[in-house]
Write a protein that binds this DNA or RNA. Structure first.
Lengths: 211, 211
DNA sequence: ATATTGTATTTTGTATACAATTTAATCTAT
DNA sequence: ATAGATTAAATTGTATACAAAATACAATAT
C-alpha cells in the first residue's frame, strides 16, 4: 500500500490544509507562491497541484493572474454544505444499513459506548466520535462518489471548529437510534433518522447565524 | 464578465473534456503529456492544471509517476452518482420552490411546452430539455455547494450518452408535476416528486446493468 | 521458447528561466 | 494635498532544462 501521490505536492497539500483548517492564515489572505515555496524548500511547480487540490475543496480560491486566496468562511456556504450533507448522509445511511459488516458495526458502537450513561461527557472527545461516526457511515456506504466529496467534509470541520452545535444529551440518543436502525438493516429508517438528526443541527446553525 | 481562467489551461480543459465525453479517447487510454502538449501547441505546464480539473471531475485518473488515464466508465459508478443526484436534486427542488423567479419559472415551462400533447417526440431534443431542466433546478436552488459538484453532472452526461433511460411518455408528466409543485411553492412535494422521478430512472439504469 | 537481468529510451516531476501582467511606488497636474 | 498618469518592482503563467523513475527493448540464462 504505497501511495505516494505526486511526490511533493501531496505533502504540501496536507500541510497547507492543516494550516488553513487551524486558521493559521487570515481569511482572504493571499498565498504568495514564492513565499510558500521557500517555506517548504521547493520550487513553485509542485505548489500548483497542491493549490488546485485545496481549491477543489474550497479551502482556497484562485483568481487568475492574481493568485490564490484563503477562502473566507461564509455562513451561507456552511449552511449550503450542511443541506447537501443532510441529503447525502441519508443516502449513505440507507446503504450502510445494507452493507455493514459485523466489525464495522462494532466499531461504530465503540465510538459512543463510553458516553452511554456517563455523568459528564468530555465535549472534545464526543465531538471527535461524532465526526468519525458520520464519516464512517459515508465510507461504509461503499458509494464511491460520496467519498470523493471532500469539500463537504471540510465545511463540516469548519462548522464544528466552533464546537458542538447541539449538546450530547440531545444528539447521543439520536446517534444510537441511527445505529440501531443500521443494525436492524432498516435502511429506510436509518435514512429518515439521520436526515432528521443532521437537519436539526442545520437548523441550529441557521438560528445561530440569524442573530 | 471577463473570466479568463488560467489563460491556456482552461481552454485545454474544455477541449479535452469535450473530447473525452465524445469518447474520442479509448477508455483507459493514457494521456501522454508531450503528445497532448504538442497537439495544442503549448508546453506541458498548462496541461497540469487542465489535467487536474479533469481528474477532479473523475474524467481522468492520475497515477503518480505513471501518468493520466481516461477513466473507464463503470456501471456502479454511474449508479452511485445517480444515487447522490437523487438526494441532491431533492434538496435543489425544495429550495427552488422557494427561490424561483417568474422568469425562471417561465423558462422551465418553455423547455417542455413543445412536447405537451405532441404526437411524436424528438428524442434528442427532449433529452436536451430534460438535462437542462435538471441542471437549472440545481442552479435556481441557489445552493453554492450543489453547483460545484461537476462530477455528478459528468456522470449524468455519460449515462445519457446511451439515450433516455425511460420514454418521454413516462417522464414528461413527471417533469410537469415537479414544475407544478415548484410553481405552487410546495418545496416538500417538489422534493418528493423529483426524488421519485430520479429514483425510477436510477432503477432503470440498475436493471439495465444487471443483464 | 520462456524467464530474467541489464541497458536504452521514454516519460514524468521538479527546478530554473523568462515574458506578460499585476501591484507598488513615484511623479506630475489640478 | 489629492487624483491621475508613469515608471519600477513583484508576481504569475508558461517555456525550457534536467534528474529520477518507468517503460521498452535487447541480451543472457534456464
Amino acid at each position: 500500500m504505497e501511495i505516494q501521490h505526486q511526490d511533493l505536492s501531496y505533502e504540501i497539500y496536507k500541510r497547507l490544509k492543516a494550516m488553513i483548517l487551524a486558521n493559521e492564515f487570515e481569511a482572504g489572505a493571499k498565498l504568495k507562491q514564492e513565499q510558500i515555496a521557500s517555506m517548504f524548500g521547493v520550487s513553485r511547480m509542485p505548489l500548483h497541484r497542491a493549490f488546485q487540490m485545496l481549491e477543489n475543496e474550497m479551502l482556497i480560491e484562485s483568481i487568475p493572474r492574481r493568485g490564490y486566496f484563503v477562502t473566507k468562511i461564509n455562513a451561507n456556504q456552511l449552511i449550503d454544505a450542511f443541506e447537501c450533507r443532510e441529503a447525502l448522509e441519508g443516502v449513505a445511511a440507507r446503504r450502510a444499513a445494507q452493507n455493514i459488516t459485523k466489525d464495522q458495526l462494532e466499531y461504530l458502537k465503540s465510538l459512543f459506548e463510553k458516553f452511554i450513561g456517563a455523568q459528564e461527557i468530555n465535549v472534545p472527545e464526543y465531538l471527535e466520535s461524532d465526526q468519525e461516526f458520520h464519516n464512517m457511515i459515508m465510507k461504509i456506504s461503499g458509494n464511491q462518489i460520496l467519498n470523493r466529496l471532500e469539500l463537504l467534509g471540510n465545511n463540516t470541520i469548519r462548522t464544528f471548529r466552533g464546537g458542538l452545535l447541539r449538546p450530547p444529551r440531545e444528539t447521543l440518543p439520536e446517534h444510537l437510534g441511527i445505529l440501531a436502525a443500521i443494525e436492524k438493516g432498516d435502511g429506510e429508517l436509518a435514512e429518515k433518522l439521520i436526515r432528521e438528526h443532521t437537519h436539526k443541527s442545520m437548523e441550529t446553525l441557521r438560528e445561530r447565524n440569524k442573530k
